[in-house]
Every structure is written in C-alpha cells, then in structure tokens.
C-alpha cells in the first residue's frame, strides 16, 4: 500500500463504473453533441438518398432529413437532462392509489 501510494501520489483512482458526480453534466453534454452529429448526419444522408431516388434531386428532402435527425437528437438530450436531475428511482417501490 505504501509503495503504491508513493508511486501514485495523485488523487484516488477514478472509478470507471460510475463517473464522479461533478462530471455528470459534462458527460451529458458530450453525449448530446455526439448524438446530435450522428443523427443529423444520418437524417441528411437519408434525405439525400431519397431526393436522388424519388424526388428528382430536389434539395428539400435533404433538409427535411437533416431536420428529423437533429430534432430527434435534441429530444433525446432534453429527456436525458430532465430525468437526470430528479433523484433516481432505482430500487424504490412506487405505491399507487
């Protein structure tokens, strides 16, 4: 123990399973941004494909797809933020009248 402490004088080893509480919000932001990028990209690509295949290469299907993807990502992010604030109800039994 003593030697390990001497070799690593830094703070306790970060737990991989659960992030530290102060980093919760940052992590959520990271995830939101990444999902936003991916979903909007996916929507855009689908729109482009549709526009090529069905809509004679019009521009609007591409924009619509982008909007769908971005909107979906936004919604997910919003829900994740909202739910995280409330205390988690894991392991609690809810009594309904």
């Amino acid at each position: 123990m003593s030697d390990s402490s001497s070799t690593t004088p830094t703070a306790p080893v970060a737990r991989t399973s659960r992030p530290m509480s102060e980093a919760l919000l940052n992590e959520k932001w990271d995830r939101c941004l990444s999902s936003m990028l991916i979903r909007s990209g996916l929507g855009l690509s689908f729109g482009i494909v549709f526009s090529v295949l069905l809509f004679k290469r019009r521009a609007w299907p591409a924009y619509v797809g982008l909007g769908f993807g971005a909107g979906r990502a936004w919604e997910e992010c919003d829900s994740s933020f909202k739910h995280a604030a409330a205390p988690s109800k894991d392991g609690l039994r809810v009594l309904r009248p």
């Binding site: 939101c32 919003d78 933020f81 604030a85």
Partner: peptide
C-alpha cells in the same frame, strides 16, 4: 430551473 431541458442548460 427544475426540469431543465437542453435550452435551459
């Protein structure tokens, strides 16, 4: 605020 979404964040 309470139940803050992305915008409020």
């Amino acid at each position: 605020p309470e139940d803050a979404g992305v915008a409020s964040h």
